[in-house]
């Protein structure tokens, strides 16, 4: 992707988001008492100012994209773009793991959920050390449980099935 296309895309999204805030989100989800005399003291004032600035930056990005002559792609070293659908599937799988963690935390307890999530992630990342990954998947959540529950005094969720001391 080039800077030109990136800025065009970001600019359009930022401008639309600002419009969404001004015309829908702020009127519906920011509440101001009816007796506020001056607009600058209203709870809505700051969000409106920020929305306006977002729109300005959005337009700035669009303007920048339209006035940039060169369309040279970025040297994409940091994120990398491996080919095929596998990366997207891994991203989807990680999202599923996160959602399952949210469901699992109150039901299975943090320790067991963390163990399963650790192992699942290690295999998702195609680890070359599966035995070490499994050992770490058991030990790391247990050690963290010992620290947070018994040293820091945090009430770590225990779940409905197996409770730890």
């Amino acid at each position: 992707m080039s800077q030109k296309s990136l800025h065009l895309r970001l600019g359009v999204v930022a401008s639309l988001f600002a419009l969404f805030l001004v015309f829908f989100a702020i009127p519906n989800f920011v509440f101001a008492p009816s007796n506020v005399g001056k607009i600058v003291l209203s709870p809505k004032f700051w969000p409106y100012v920020l929305s306006g600035l977002t729109a300005l930056i959005g337009l700035g990005l669009v303007f920048n994209a339209l006035t940039t002559a060169s369309d040279v792609p970025f040297e994409d070293e940091e994120t990398g773009h491996p080919e095929g659908s596998a990366p997207w599937m891994r991203l989807g799988a990680l999202a599923v793991i996160m959602v399952l963690m949210m469901f699992g935390l109150p039901r299975l307890g943090m320790v067991w959920t963390a163990m399963l999530a650790f192992a699942a992630c290690a295999f998702l990342f195609r680890t070359r050390h599966p035995i070490a990954a499994l050992v770490c998947a058991v030990i790391v959540p247990l050690l963290l449980y010992v620290f947070f529950a018994h040293v820091a005094g945090v009430a770590i969720p225990q779940g409905n099935f197996v409770r730890l001391p």
């Binding site: 963690m101 935390l105 943090m110 963390a114 999530a117 650790f118 192992a119 992630c121 290690a122 990342f125 195609r126 680890t127 070359r128 050390h129 070490a132 990954a133 770490c136 998947a137 790391v140 959540p141 963290l144 449980y145 947070f148 820091a152 945090v154 770590i156 969720p157």
Partner: peptide, 17 residues
């Protein structure tokens, strides 16, 4: 590839705490 799952678990414990 073992460190990053560990970081994930650490984040969950830390943020919950």
């Amino acid at each position: 590839r073992i460190l990053m799952p560990g970081v994930l678990v650490l984040c969950v414990y830390g943020v919950f705490a």
